[in-house]
Amino acid sequence: MFGMNADWSLEVFERYFTIGDYAGGEARWCPGCGDHGVLTAIHKLLRDEQVPPETTVAVSGIGCSSRLPHYMGTYGFHGLHGRALPIACGIKSRRPELDVWVATGDGDCFSIGTAHWIHAIRYNMDMTVLAFDNSVYGLTKAQTSPTSPLGFKTNTHPTGAILPPLNPLTTTLGITNVSFVAQVVDWSPPLLYEVIKAAHRHKGTGFVRIIQRCPVFSDSVSKALQNSPERVLLLQHEKGIPIDASAKRQFPNSITHDPSDLAAARAVAEDTSRIPVGLLYQNTDALCYETLSSRGTEFTVKKRLAGINAALDRFTI
């Protein structure tokens, strides 16, 4: 009927995915690590959105958070330190139908992978990029990261970090063709879920900086923040991400911020006395690179052969 195959439509109906379909091996992060909550939110979201596990690919670099693909029941690519984004972009380039997720950390993304972070934002391929920021290198045990606060003591700076931290939000918002920047803290599960959902639904690179607890190596950083919830600034707007009552109870301060206003977003990001949470910026019209890179995927063998023969003919003597 209507050109549809009845068996096929029946099968789609029968394939209902549960959270179990998205879960992989048991997560081996430390107890109290913020990554657990993010993983739970992703599983729940994929279930709610009923994304087929076989067309989902979780890509990561190296680091604690980059273990995430191993805990997914989807395809995964646990790549190299700092290099998750080029791999993810490559996956998307000729297979734009795949649902690509990137898990990266503050060392992975903001240090060794900086070039790729900048350019992946510019490519703006339709994928969800979660930057897990715990302000420290965890896997290699307590070295200073680009987002470690000034004076934060680590094994590489035992007397305290000697440079002021990099601001991932202003950096990301400064990149041409940026299309989605949000920030959230891991200790507000409903908000975490909503932010990831919005990033996933966004057509383009949904970049989320997740401020994430590391109870082992940077407990003091997240504790300080958890103990002063007034530092968190909820971003509210009709075009923004819905903020539920529990988050409003958790964080008393909020402002109205229009996420279509890039200058305003940059101003909000610039003020490091506050931790903005919610949607900083969104542009649904930004160019997605895969619309260019996937051109010609539909070519038939005949058409390809005709193309190569035409090319050869130009050199024929």
């Binding site: 791999i87 900048i118 350019h119 890179s293």
Partner: peptide, 24 residues
């Protein structure tokens, strides 16, 4: 022939991109 040349941001990204495509 329906192909695409990706000029990457650096040599590492170029091979990473190719590896991503190959994986897919």
């Amino acid at each position: 022939v329906g192909g695409f040349v990706h000029q990457a941001e650096d040599e590492i990204a170029a091979i990473g991109f190719a590896i991503g495509s190959s994986f897919a």
